[in-house]
Amino acid sequence: KRPMNAFMVWAKDERRKILQAFPDMHNSNISKILGSRWKAMTNLEKQPYYEEQARLSKQHLEKYPDYK
């Protein structure tokens, strides 16, 4: 399994927040909201998630050095 990218790292927690506020919302609508919010964020706001992506990628490479 591939490591999560920056968007997926961010969306994991954001999806939970949306589901808590709107428990009956369909997944497709949640995904649209998440995509819009991510696009509206600045690079500075996204930076911590890119850093986490890099950490996860490094960890994955160490754990699975032959992964293609």
Results as ranks from 00 to 15, higher is better:
R16G: 11
R15W: 12
R15Q: 06
E45I: 03
K46G: 01
K1M: 07
N43W: 11
E51N: 07
A54M: 08
H60W: 09
I33T: 05
M8N: 15
K1Y: 09
A54H: 10
Q53P: 04
S31C: 07
Q53Y: 14
P48G: 04
E51R: 07
R55F: 07
D66S: 11
K63C: 13
L61Q: 12
H60I: 06
K68T: 10
K12Q: 13
A54K: 11
H26E: 15
L61I: 10
H60D: 13
R55A: 07
K32D: 11
K12A: 11
L61G: 14
K58Q: 13
D24H: 05
L56C: 04
W38A: 00
M41L: 08
M25V: 05
N5I: 01
N5H: 00
K12E: 14
K32F: 05
E45V: 04
K17R: 07
K17P: 00
L56H: 07
P65K: 10
Y50V: 09
Y49R: 03
L19A: 11
M25H: 02
Q59D: 07
I33W: 07
P48N: 05
H26A: 14
S31H: 05
K1L: 08
D66E: 10
Q47L: 10
L61E: 14
Q20I: 10
S28G: 09
S57N: 12
I18R: 00
K17Q: 06
N5W: 02
K68S: 14
I18H: 01
W10I: 00
L19R: 12
K68P: 08
S31T: 14
S28A: 13
L61K: 12
P3L: 03
K17M: 04
K58T: 12
I18A: 00
G35F: 14
N27V: 13
Q20D: 12
N5R: 03
K1G: 14
S57L: 11
E14S: 03
M8H: 14
R15D: 00
L44V: 12
E45C: 06
L56Q: 12
S28I: 08
E51W: 01
R2H: 12
R2S: 13
D66C: 08
S57F: 08
S31M: 10
H26G: 13
L56W: 04
V9I: 14
P65H: 15
H60N: 12
A54P: 02
K46L: 02
N43F: 06
Y67W: 12
R15F: 06
P65G: 12
S31Y: 03
K32M: 08
W10T: 01
Y67Q: 15
K63N: 09
N29F: 03
I18V: 07
M4S: 13
R16Y: 05
Y49P: 04
S36F: 04
E52H: 04
K1N: 15
R37D: 02
L61M: 14
Q59S: 12
Y50P: 00
N29T: 15
L61H: 14
Y64M: 15
K68A: 15
I33A: 03
M25W: 03
M4K: 13
M8F: 10
K39F: 02
K39C: 11
R55I: 06
L44T: 12
R2P: 11
Q20A: 11
I30M: 05
P3W: 09
A6K: 04
D24W: 06
N43M: 11
L56I: 06
R15C: 09
N5L: 02
N27S: 14
L61F: 10
M25G: 02
K32E: 10
R37K: 10
W38C: 00
Q47I: 08
E45S: 02
G35Y: 15
R55D: 02
R16H: 13
K32S: 08
Y49N: 04
S57V: 12
K32A: 13
S36L: 09
K58Y: 07
L19Q: 15
L44H: 08
E14C: 07
Q20N: 07
N27Y: 09
P48Y: 05
A54E: 11
P48V: 07
D24Q: 05
P48K: 05
Y64I: 14
L56K: 05
A6L: 00
K39R: 11
R2E: 14
P23W: 00
L56F: 08
Y64G: 13
Y67V: 12
L44E: 15
S36I: 07
M4T: 14
M4I: 07
P23M: 00
K58W: 05
G35T: 15
L44A: 14
Q53A: 15
E45T: 03
D24T: 10
Y64T: 15
R16M: 08
F7M: 03
A11C: 06
Q47P: 01
L44C: 06
S31Q: 12
D24S: 03
A11I: 01
M4H: 06
S31K: 12
R55E: 05
K12F: 03
N29G: 10
F7S: 00
E52N: 04
W38Q: 02
E45N: 03
P23G: 01
A6R: 01
Y67C: 15
F7Q: 03
A11Y: 04
S57G: 09
Q20K: 08
I30H: 00
R55S: 09
A6D: 03
R55K: 07
Q59K: 09
Y64R: 11
A6I: 02
K17N: 10
E14T: 10
D13A: 01
E51Y: 04
N27K: 13
L61C: 09
K32T: 07
K32R: 08
E52V: 06
N29H: 11
P23K: 05
I30C: 04
I33S: 02
W38M: 00
A54V: 06
M41Y: 00
D66Q: 10
S36Q: 13
Y50E: 09
P23F: 00
K12H: 09
K46Y: 01
M8V: 08
D66V: 08
E14Y: 04
M25E: 08
A11M: 04
A21F: 09
E51V: 07
G35S: 15
W38K: 03
I30A: 02
P23E: 00
K39Y: 00
A11W: 03
K17Y: 02
K39I: 02
D66F: 04
W38Y: 01
E52G: 03
F22P: 02
R2W: 02
E52R: 06
W10D: 01
N43H: 14
A11K: 09
E14H: 10
I18P: 00
A6F: 01
D13K: 08
A6M: 01
G35V: 14
P65L: 07
Y49I: 05
I18C: 01
M41T: 01
L56P: 05
H26N: 09
Q47T: 07
L61D: 15
H26Q: 14
E51Q: 12
W10Y: 07
S31N: 15
Y50Q: 04
Y50T: 05
N27A: 13
Q47F: 05
A11T: 01
K46C: 01
A11R: 02
W38S: 02
Y50G: 03
K46I: 01
D66H: 03
W10A: 01
P48C: 02
S31F: 07
L56M: 13
T42N: 08
K39T: 09
A21S: 11
G35Q: 15
Y64P: 14
K12D: 08
I18D: 00
A21W: 06
S36K: 13
K12I: 12
K1E: 15
H60R: 08
Y67K: 14
F22M: 08
M25T: 06
M4C: 04
R2C: 10
M8I: 03
S28Q: 11
E52A: 12
S36T: 13
R2Y: 12
E52W: 02
R37H: 01
R15L: 09
Q47E: 07
W38D: 02
E45M: 05
N29E: 15
Y64Q: 12
Y50R: 06
K68N: 01
K58S: 09
R37A: 10
R37E: 05
R15H: 02
W10F: 06
Q53K: 05
F7P: 01
M4E: 13
E51D: 02
S28C: 11
A54N: 07
R37F: 05
Q20C: 03
R15P: 00
R55Q: 08
I33L: 13
H60T: 10
L19M: 13
P48F: 04
I33Q: 04
K46D: 01
K32V: 06
S28E: 13
L61A: 12
D66W: 04
K68C: 03
E52S: 03
D66K: 08
L19S: 09
S36P: 03
N27C: 10
K46M: 01
K32P: 01
I18L: 11
N43L: 10
G35L: 12
K12M: 11
I18T: 02
F22S: 14
E52T: 06
W38T: 00
L19F: 05
Q20T: 09
Q20R: 09
N5G: 07
L56S: 07
E51M: 02
